[in-house]
Amino acid sequence: MSRWSGPFVIKEVFPHGAVELLKLGGGDQTFKVNGQRLKVYKGGELIRHNAAFLLQDPP
């Protein structure tokens, strides 16, 4: 079975462009991919989450 059989949720985005994906309904199954390989999902209803991040310079 292909790792690309989705759906997936983005778990983490790394500064160098990699993205960690979490497979929905697959327990805690994750894998990292190049973020440029991802495509926007354009079917069905999307559940959106808002997040706020406080960015600070390192001490």
Rank of each mutant, 00 (worst) to 15 (best):
L22D: 05
V13I: 15
A51P: 01
F53W: 06
D57W: 10
Q36C: 04
L55Q: 05
V33K: 05
L22C: 02
M1W: 06
L38S: 07
L24F: 02
E12M: 05
S5L: 13
P59D: 02
Q56T: 12
V19C: 01
K32E: 09
P59C: 02
Q56R: 15
L38I: 10
G17I: 08
L46F: 09
T30H: 06
K23F: 05
K11D: 11
D28C: 06
G44S: 03
K11R: 11
Y41V: 14
G17P: 10
P58L: 13
H49I: 09
P58T: 15
A18E: 11
G26K: 09
G6L: 07
G35I: 04
D28I: 03
L46Y: 01
G35K: 06
K42N: 12
L46V: 12
I10C: 04
L24M: 14
K23P: 08
L21I: 05
F53L: 11
N50M: 06
P7T: 09
L21K: 01
Y41F: 10
L38G: 02
K42F: 04
K39T: 12
G6T: 08
V13D: 00
A18N: 13
P59M: 08
G25T: 07
R3E: 13
I47E: 13
G27K: 03
F8S: 01
W4F: 15
K42I: 04
Q29V: 08
K23V: 11
G25M: 07
E12Q: 13
G35C: 01
R3K: 15
G43Q: 10
L55A: 08
M1T: 10
F14T: 01
L21Y: 00
V13F: 02
V9D: 09
W4I: 13
K11E: 09
S2A: 15
L21R: 04
L22S: 12
H49G: 06
K39D: 00
K11G: 05
K11T: 01
D57C: 06
P58D: 09
P7M: 06
S2M: 11
L24G: 00
F14C: 01
G26W: 05
P59G: 14
K32P: 00
R37I: 08
A52H: 11
R3C: 05
L55C: 04
A52P: 00
M1R: 08
G6P: 14
